[in-house]
């Protein structure tokens, strides 16, 4: 049996291995996939920051109680609880409060060190007590809490970080939207690159296509040949781009870790790896800190590129074939 006769069906009837270049198209799609990975990283990073802020600052309230040791009179006029104890009791009983803890004198000194120096707490300044309040998911109505505390312990200040966090969250979500927009633009450009490649292939194989068309090939048969080639090349480009992006994203994740890592994941990170094994271990640990959408999105990139290649080639070829009878 001859070489040709031994070949399986589904061969390269239209000579697309030469007509659809296996260098330029994958390289261009790889560049698009690389940019898409960066956009995904931007989106994932912004999302992680929002989550981190909301779980951190937004979930906490600081309460200042001036003259904390002063005793509050009971209803019968006799001295009762101190102002600090009263405020703590009210806070712990309030709905939406997970924990209310007064800072110790040492913690307060540490907190004020930048402004008052190391002996700050020992000065004659009358310092208020500071209560750190951790909130549950929905949290309390901060305005109502302020009113209750003001009535029971006059002069108490409730400081919520929610407003700042909300503004930062809006900024982060805008960045996230921009990242998704960039991703859409990159996908569009990738489709345009595939379309140009396929159109070049159509022109190069115009005569072959007309012959095959005359032999009774359907549009689906011809478009399928182009789509198979474009899917392979775009998928290959997507894989290359994702692989190239991985070390860059790991490096970015390393830089971002202090801002987004939880105490548990931060503890898992090696401080300064000096050997290759330690570096690999550090990167593996870093992978765990990468945003989930990036961990999912990165392996999906080659598949997404392949899908873009398939559908763009199908649409381009079928549109072009309409000119044939």
């Amino acid at each position: 049996m001859t070489r040709s006769a031994d070949r399986r069906a589904g061969s390269d009837d239209l000579g697309l291995r030469r007509a659809l270049d296996d260098r330029m198209l994958p390289v261009l799609v790889a560049a698009m996939a690389f940019l898409a990975a960066l956009a995904l990283a931007g989106s994932g990073g912004a999302s992680a920051l929002v989550k981190h802020w909301q779980e951190g600052a937004a979930a906490a309230v600081t309460v200042q109680v001036p003259t904390p040791s002063t005793l509050l009179p009971r209803t019968d006029g006799t001295p009762g609880q101190t102002r600090l104890d009263r405020a703590l009791a009210l806070l712990r009983a309030a709905p939406g409060v997970a924990q209310a803890q007064a800072l110790s004198e040492t913690e307060l000194t540490e907190l004020l060190k930048p402004w008052l120096g190391s002996g700050g707490a020992g000065t004659a300044l009358p310092l208020p007590a500071v209560i750190q309040v951790r909130l549950t998911g929905s949290g309390p109505d901060v305005a109502a809490l302020q009113t209750t505390l003001e009535a029971a312990v006059p002069g108490t200040l409730v400081e919520s970080h929610g407003a700042w966090v909300q503004r930062l969250a809006v900024l982060a979500r805008s960045l996230q939207a921009c990242a998704w927009l960039a991703l859409a633009v990159v996908a569009g450009v990738a489709a345009a690159v595939v379309m140009v490649g396929v159109r070049t292939g159509l022109l190069a194989r115009r005569e072959s296509i007309e012959i095959v068309h005359g032999l009774g090939a359907t549009d689906g048969y011809i478009a399928g040949r182009f789509a198979a080639r474009a899917t392979w090349l775009a998928g290959l480009g997507g894989l290359l781009g994702a692989l190239l992006a991985l070390p860059v994203l790991l490096a970015l994740a390393t830089l971002a870790a202090p801002f987004v890592a939880t105490p548990q994941t931060a503890a898992a990170l090696p401080v300064s790896p000096t050997t290759l094994a330690a570096l690999a271990s550090a990167w593996l640990a870093q992978l765990k800190t990468m945003p989930a959408e990036l961990l999912v999105g990165l392996p999906v990139l080659p598949a997404a590129a392949a899908i873009i290649g398939f559908f763009t080639a199908q649409a381009t070829v079928r549109g072009w074939l309409r000119r044939l009878p």
């Binding site: 070949r7 589904g10 009837d13 000579g15 005569e207 072959s208 009774g216």
Partner: peptide, 20 residues
């Protein structure tokens, strides 16, 4: 003739059958 230049004689002849 209108043969496909990148295909062998066998593949040119087999083409209508493959299309079918």
């Amino acid at each position: 003739f209108r043969l496909l230049p990148h295909l062998s004689a066998f593949d040119n002849v087999a083409l209508p059958l493959r299309i079918a």
